[in-house]
Design a protein around this nucleic acid. Structure first.
Lengths: 301, 301
DNA sequence: TTTCATATATAGGGAAATCCTATCATTCAA
DNA sequence: TTGAATGATAGGATTTCCCTATATATGAAA
């Protein structure tokens, strides 16, 4: 077996921080994993590196001998992987925007994915409606954003992500899920959606309009998650993305309605500053793609 | 993703040897694997390191920039893993002994295993009968040997490996495999074994002796593999280890006989110089254990 | 040009390593 | 003696890694 960088890295941090646990924290690993790495390193070098001293570990002579070389190695490794960061326009801070409907469905996963792929940023999140995000992109106040049907200046590049999935949802107490539902069937119910101008409102009005109707009781709320809560509580019906109702759907607190006509399906896009494209941006874009596709935000093509 | 030592190593050897292929050879890998390592390295650094130049690859500017650091890194890695070799009593050369019956069954695998575990030695093989190996161990002319029932000086350490499996074998043309065979049944046949003193001869004589008989036609040959060949050719019957007849058994050129009484089963031991124990020796011992157990030399306990 | 030889890329499946959770063992301090 | 802190170990799930087979691209030879 051969020594690997991750083993050496574990050794380095243990000696710097004084304990296996602390090294594990530093490396975003668990303590057993660090133990294992050291075990394997000792195995491959054929030398014991630590000995127990009370409840701490102390370096053996062989371990101490190794120390300077390990230090140089970590420094070199740092140099090698840090080099491109100097020229990466997106270094340090990532200003990321998304509409609430998207953010609720996949933002947690997205941040986790970036972390896991060692794309560390100080993230500045902007959760706003697409129209506002678009304006802030145009004014270069955001690096990347997920938006619906954008119309942006030339310095902002746009790439399609897919077609969003939406549906009408209602509490099972309203007993609406068993049969096909049309605009006339929802007329007696309180409808919740976001205030104008918003994609959700457009969706609602278009759907009712297709039957020449308008919803009779139309409530608005600018927070998607509050709309979801109200719907689950049986206070009304709403158009939402299934992705943000994962828990409620599993628990049976809301039901997806089978509606006719079908809802218009808005297109989802990725928009980003052209002059910030570099390694960091590519990582972010790929992570967003993976997470959006991995979520249930999109209609299967 | 993070750069790993193996990626850097691949990069290093490509630049030194001028092609992916040559680097793959050097590293005992296949060319696609080297391609993949470079691909991942480029991915994790966010930089292209090679560009096509005709059917060769040429370093990009970014690749060239990386070169000195990679060189230092390889040198450090070499230092770190070479350090313990200076104090390892078993460095460079491994004088290894085994009886032919064992060597035929597992020596090829053993050398492969050592290679795979990065335990590189100039191997000096001694294929001799156990009694001779034992003498050469006592005279410190061999570092490690696999032997049967050893009796050695104190500077040679001994550890049990298991109980050897043996059986009578014959060509199917002799039609001996269908029923239980006793000493009387083999009396009319030519028996091949090794000349005195040898474990095989003892096995043969003990087996016949248990019925108060002696083989009538007893041929001897000091090469186990020749005995195997003669047996497969139908020239006689012999006691052998199934491990060295793998191919012939598969092809149906020899058959294992069901014999009564059961053959005596000799114990197999590992013997090695006590003053050569270090990391290298431990690797060798473990490799021998793994290979002997992995072969069909031993009776299942 | 066509064909062959050389060099790298890609796909996919199987083997091996890696890592995590849960649990245990030891030490030290309250 | 108990509780808190530190490592070790076991088992299982995931991920990575590497190989075979095949495709692509280039240059040389027929």
């Amino acid at each position: 077996m051969k020594a690997t960088l991750s083993q050496i890295e574990a050794f380095y941090w243990i000696t710097r921080l004084g304990s296996f646990r602390a090294a594990a924290m530093q490396l975003n690993l668990t303590q057993p994993t660090v133990s294992l790495r050291i075990h394997n390193l000792e195995e491959s070098l054929g030398v014991r590196l630590f000995k127990r001293a009370g409840r701490k570990m102390r370096l053996t002579d062989d371990g101490t001998t190794l120390l300077p070389d390990v230090g140089s190695m970590m420094q070199l490794a740092g140099q090698i992987s840090a080099r491109q960061r100097l020229v990466d326009p997106l270094h340090g801070r990532l200003r990321l925007g998304a509409p609430a409907s998207i953010a609720l469905g996949c933002m947690a996963e997205l941040l986790g994915t970036l972390e896991k792929r060692d794309a560390r940023f100080d993230v500045a999140l902007t959760i706003e409606k697409s129209s506002i995000l678009q304006r802030r992109l145009n004014e270069r106040e955001i690096d990347v954003a997920i938006v619906v049907e954008p119309d942006v200046k030339p310095h902002v590049r746009v790439a399609p992500l897919g077609i969003m999935k939406h549906a009408w949802f209602a509490s099972p107490r309203l007993s609406l899920a068993r049969r096909w539902i049309g605009p006339a069937d929802l007329m007696p119910h309180q409808v919740f959606t976001q205030p104008e101008p918003s994609n959700l409102m457009t969706l609602v009005m278009t759907w009712f309009g297709s039957a020449g109707l308008e919803p009779k009781r139309l409530g608005t709320c600018d927070s998607i998650s509050v709309i979801a809560r109200l719907t689950a509580a049986g206070e009304g019906v709403s158009i939402l993305s299934p992705a943000i109702l994962g828990t409620e759907l599993c628990l049976g607190k809301v039901e997806m309605l089978k509606t006719r006509p079908t809802l218009v399906r808005p297109r989802l896009y990725l928009a980003y500053q052209a002059d910030k494209v570099g390694h960091g941006m590519k990582l972010v874009i790929q992570a967003i793609r993976d997470c959006v596709i991995g979520s249930s935000l999109l209609a299967r093509r």
